[in-house]
Design a protein around this nucleic acid. Structure first.
Lengths: 336, 336
DNA sequence: TTGTATGCGTTATCAG
DNA sequence: CTGATAACGCATACAA
């Protein structure tokens, strides 16, 4: 049997209450006994039972993670997977633990909020999810601190890349070379990141006084390589004239774009330059190596962790905020 | 406040004990009241408090996952990340939940076993870890069911790829073409998968009566692209004659091999054919697209889940076993 | 400052 | 078959 707080109390000839106090830094206890307890605890390796503790108190030192499997890739997602990892690393350093929220507990179907109440999670990271999902709305509307690194909603704190800056960097790289025929290939506009970048694209066109050409905005059916590939083939077939530079809104899409262009007889970057978005690991290994807008996944995850813990510990949490993490243009061989 | 078992007892004019019985399918209760309770519970959405439940019983319906961050990439690991994902999906379907074991709880340092005892995890998946790690040994030696998809130890059940078959497939592909100069590029032999494949390589050489040439076994310093690249450059510099086919023991390494060969003036596959191992997503997008030994990550994760749950529920668990999942040769353009 | 008592929400063991 | 009642291990308000 595991050692309980009663055991250590007995061995130290103290009361369980006193032990609890020094372990939680609460109440008042004399320095000498405090040290005696601390010392004993360290020697013996006693640590309070987590479940009993959570049952009794209102906190759990646990953070829930919502990862709606949009594309069913889950943890292997090249972008969100990294963010979760750095978030996890950060909050664990702070003594928290992460656990995936699943909308079912054993065999019971639960809403996210019910699940969180049941587990008494202190806060939740919404990695990705749908703004219109009723469960998400319910959760965000509750008193549980939430931070997201993908979606933006009222009463939700978000941390994500500076998408506008990303698109602007692509523009600047084009204009520097005197290129003003810039196209954009997006994934499904159901994703905030995508439509926000499209909006940035449109705004920048007018900023730089470039003609808006609807046919230079192409939307692929999915998020991955194949979608980018197919969309580009279709694009080539239907457009009067292709732009000189294409900004693909994810590296995966960009890979598809490039292959489709090549197979259609275009040379990248000579005929058309291509820029990706994300800078996933393989961007540099692709042929041609991919110029791209690097998102700082590590900082996004870490910042989200910092922000969430701050909200948990010092409350004042239900205002809307969006913190933007700078992106960076990485020049490789798919552009000049 | 959340609804408790007392509330539903009161509303149904029953005792809490009875409610508990029907919820847990234990003890005996009349069909009529059982149905009444079940119905009420479904209507009202009551679900028992997890922490109270775990506190009282000895199980938690929770599975711990150990993922020693060998290479610090964590969840983004292109191979293990996928396995965890499919494992997670499977066990969640069975009503279990996964949680990462971290060797610290709040601010306390714990051994894996202590951590598991504290959390009362029902079983653990050891995704990757070191055979000589004292914590791992302690855990595996305990009564807690463990399954691994990377390491092999006494009293541990393992499920992993059929590495011997993988190497054999590479050999067969070479011999089919009349090629008998086969080299192997490995990562650090601290990894079971690597040294096991090297052993298979050596065994197959004698099986097929090919001369053993020590200089055709090359060991890179790390696991990734750069390691493969550097090792290959070094290889080229020091070897009398390169083999006609190189089996790289991971796709990442293979990418490095190919780039190094190309930069040294060799043409892949004309001069030298290269085969990878894993079939990560990017393998088909590399140039040339990578022929590789595909590991069935999905089945590994699922099988591990199935096996672990079986052990949890029907015990009889502390024998050593190794279940091998078939691999598959995927022909692409880095070989003929 | 320390100890005692009660409750957190369950499950399980008994009587009835 | 059903209902009290006692743990489970801890935290906390309160009494000493």
């Amino acid at each position: 049997m595991r050692k309980t707080i009663y055991d250590v109390a007995k061995e130290l000839k103290l009361s369980p209450g006193t032990i609890s106090k020094v372990l939680n830094n609460t109440g008042s206890v004399s320095l000498s006994t405090r040290q005696r307890v601390l010392h004993y605890v360290k020697e013996t390796g006693y640590v309070a039972d987590t479940n009993a503790r959570i049952l009794k108190s209102k906190f759990s030192y646990t953070i829930g993670v919502i990862f709606s499997d949009i594309s069913l890739v889950g943890l292997e997602h090249p972008f969100f997977g990294s963010i979760i990892q750095s978030f996890k690393t950060y909050v664990e350093k702070e003594g928290y633990e992460i656990v995936f929220i699943t909308s079912k507990l054993g065999s019971n179907e639960l809403t996210y909020l019910e699940w969180c109440r049941n587990k008494k999670v202190d806060g939740v990271l919404i990695v990705s999810g749908n703004i219109n999902n009723a469960y998400i709305i319910e959760l965000v509307s509750s008193d549980i601190p939430c931070v997201s690194c993908d979606i933006i909603m009222p009463r939700l704190h978000s941390v994500m890349s500076d998408d506008f800056q990303g698109v602007r960097l692509a523009f600047e790289h084009a204009l520097q070379q005197g290129i003003n025929q810039i196209g954009i290939l997006s994934g499904p506009a159901t994703s905030r990141a995508f439509w926000e970048r499209i909006a940035a694209y449109q705004e920048l066109l007018t900023t730089y006084q470039l003609p808006i050409q609807e046919e230079w905005i192409k939307v692929a059916a999915g998020f991955g390589y194949t979608s980018g590939y197919n969309a580009t083939l279709d694009w080539i077939k239907t457009v009067k004239q292709l732009p000189k530079m294409i900004l693909a809104l994810s590296d995966d899409l960009a890979f598809g774009v490039i292959r489709a262009l090549e197979e259609s007889g275009y040379v990248v970057p000579k005929d058309i330059q291509v820029i990706g978005f994300d800078d996933i690991n393989f961007a540099r290994l692709f042929t041609p190596s991919l110029s791209t807008i690097r998102q700082n996944k590590q900082m996004i995850g870490e910042t989200a962790g910092k922000m969430l813990i701050e909200l948990i510990q010092h409350g004042n949490g239900k205002e809307t905020s969006v913190q933007r993490i700078p992106v960076e243009f990485i020049k490789r061989n798919s552009t000049y």
